[in-house]
Structure formats: structure tokens, C-alpha cells
Design a protein around this nucleic acid. Structure first.
Lengths: 197, 197
DNA sequence: GTCTATAAAGGGATAGAC
DNA sequence: GTCTATCCCTTTATAGAC
């Protein structure tokens, strides 16, 4: 792995853990095993380094959603795949969604203008499938935005809120693992049942 | 409002918007309409000021959940009240839950030891109600942790993810207001339907 | 209690040797 | 490309007058 790549990876970890102001250039240099001056040689300023990281991290979120929304899979399969994918990904890496959400909200203008890569996902395909499934009586009517946000919420939020959830429910580590272990099946069932006509 | 209170309010706003490292003491002093030195007179250090804010902000979250979990209301009413309360609160103030979640995850040890106020909520009451409702055939069996996390997720997450949701679904401001307007009813219905036996 | 002035440390950025 | 040394601005924190 080249120097630039090592720097980028070090910066990625540091910024995701501590944010723009929280992560220090010295720390990033240490993690990369190089000198502070080299950071500036490759990325000029801290802001530019941060922007590079932001673009890459946020840029990976959208293609996943795009693939899901625009694929030709049947509706039910599509939702199940999305749930599997997001619960697996987020459970292994809580700080990435937290980073994405923080950045989106701190600079929403910059987010839309410079960060989101390429064409936006087109929800038309999903909307057609929902309309068809509704017309056929397979599901109850629901607005696509509500459905999508419900599914994403149940996949992502519990891992963001883990400390609170454990505290409120009095869960220890074992119980948390049990919870995570059953999470995908539970969300699938919850969504499936909620959509029954 | 006394000086200490004005400082605290200014710090609260600044820290919630920009985080510990992002907010500067000078900015807090300006917001409070006083001098930088006074911040240290009242709160010694930035860390202590931040901790005071953190305790207050996070401390307000738990009593709400406690009241809900331990109240004597019927199960369905309890859930509906929780949904009303959280959607209303979060929709008016997105950055508070983001602040709470960030702090919880950055220092989970400190969170449990020093931040959570008083006795933890006891979920026994809710668990009894769930068991009873299940036994009576009013709802399907579901683990309390899954139910609570599903409800909280659907109330809170969409407001955290608003920029992404708007981008992915191609929603403009009008459509967002429409979405928010129907949110409470939609979540209630979703939960209600998902729990049908 | 509140201010001005200033110390002390931290951290981003650059110059210049190799 | 990579390093050492250093500049210099920002920011936290304190001293001391009022």
C-alpha cells in the first residue's frame, strides 16, 4: 500500500472516530507511520484531506441504495436483501453511519452539491412495485418514503443507540449479542407484518 | 436569568451544534454576552462546562423513557404517547439526538457511570404488559428490546437522516413537510399492524 | 463578579536539507 | 518523496485591576 493510501486510511479512521476538529494532524501522521509534513505534501490542508475522506465514505452509501431501489428483484426480496446488507454492515461498524449522519447535517448544502456521487437513486422502480403490490392486494397502501425510512431506521438506529438501549433495557453483553443475532429476522418479520393488507 | 445560566445556555447551544472541539470558548462567551474569563470563573475548564451540558442534555432523555416504561397506561396507549412525544420533540430539534448519540458512543463508559441520572428505567412493567397482551392474543409475541428499538428508531432516525432521505427519494421541502405531517400516524399504524397476531 | 491583558500550550502549515 | 526544524496563528487558561 502506497504512502498516499496509508495516509488516507489513517485519516479515514481518525476522522470517523473523532470528527474534523477532534482528529489532529499529528495523530493521523502517527497512525500512517509517517511525518506530519507529508500529510501536507499529499493533501495540502486538513480541510482537503477531510473532504477526500468524506466523499469516499458517503459515496459508498448511495450506490448500495441505488442498486436496491433500481434492481429488478421482487419487492419482498428487495427489502429482505436491504435489511441483511444494512444490519450486517452497520453492526460491524457503528461509527461510519454516525459520521455520515453528522456530516450530512452539519453541512447539508455541501453534502448535496459536492459529496453525493453521480446520479441520484431513482425511486420510480420501487414506487411502481409498491403500486402494483398494492393493487394486487399483496400489501396495504404506504408511501414509499415512509416505508424506506422505516426499514433503514430499524436497521441502523439500534446500533447508534446501543448504549442507551442497553441501559434502558438493562441488557448486558450477552443479551446484546442475542438481540443482534435475532435482529435481521425480527426486522424482516416486522416489516412484512406491517405491510399485510 | 443569571450569568451562570446564560453561560450554560450559550454553551448548550454551541456544543450541540458543533461538538466539544468544534465549539470555541470565545464563541460561547459571545453568545452569552460576557467575557471569556467569566466562563472560567464559573466553570473552571472547557471540559467541565461540556460535562455539565452533557449531563443536562442526556439527563432529560431518560426520565421520558422511564415515565413511559413504568406508567400504568394500557400498552397501546403507551406506545402511541411515546410516538407522539418523540416525533414532536425530535422534529423540532434534530441536533439534540445527534449530540446524545455521539456522546454516548464516544465515551460509553463515562456515559453509564456519570451521565445517566438516578435509577435506570425498569422495563418489567412493559414486559408484563407485553406478556399479558400476547397471552390474550391481542398481539404477536415479540421481545421487548426489539419492540422498543423499532419504535424509537422510526421516531428518531428519519430526522437524523433527512438529507439522505430527501436526496434518495427526490423530496423537496414541500414533500418533506408532507412526510413529517403524516409521520406520527404512519408510525402508529406500522407498529400496530406489525403487532397483530 | 466582571473586565483587560497576557501567559502558555497546541496545532496547522511551510522552508529547506537530503 | 521524506524528513527536521520552525513559524505563527488560534485557543485555553490565568493574573490582576476595578
Amino acid at each position: 500500500m502506497g504512502t498516499e493510501q496509508r495516509i488516507f486510511e489513517a485519516a479515514r479512521q481518525a476522522f470517523i472516530e473523532k470528527g474534523l476538529e477532534g482528529a489532529k494532524m499529528q495523530e493521523i501522521a502517527d497512525r500512517a507511520g509517517i511525518n506530519k509534513a507529508l500529510l501536507h505534501y499529499y493533501f495540502r490542508t486538513k480541510e482537503k484531506l477531510f473532504e477526500a475522506v468524506t466523499k469516499q465514505v458517503i459515496g459508498r452509501v448511495f450506490p448500495v441504495l441505488r442498486n436496491m431501489l433500481e434492481s429488478d428483484l421482487p419487492l419482498e426480496e428487495k427489502l429482505d436483501n436491504l435489511i441483511d446488507l444494512y444490519v450486517d454492515t452497520v453492526s460491524r461498524n457503528t461509527f461510519v453511519p454516525l459520521f455520515v449522519i453528522t456530516e450530512m447535517n452539519k453541512r447539508p448544502d455541501n453534502f448535496l452539491a459536492n459529496i453525493v456521487p453521480g446520479p441520484l437513486p431513482k425511486p420510480q422502480k420501487l414506487m411502481q412495485q409498491l403500486e402494483l403490490a398494492t393493487a394486487e392486494g399483496r400489501i396495504r397502501p404506504i408511501e414509499p418514503a415512509h416505508l424506506i425510512s422505516n426499514v433503514l431506521a430499524m436497521c441502523v438506529f439500534p446500533f447508534l443507540a446501543k448504549p442507551m438501549l442497553c441501559a434502558v433495557m438493562g441488557m448486558d453483553h450477552q443479551q446484546w449479542l442475542h438481540y443482534v443475532n435475532g435482529r435481521k429476522a425480527e426486522v424482516k418479520r416486522f416489516v412484512h407484518d406491517a405491510l399485510r393488507p
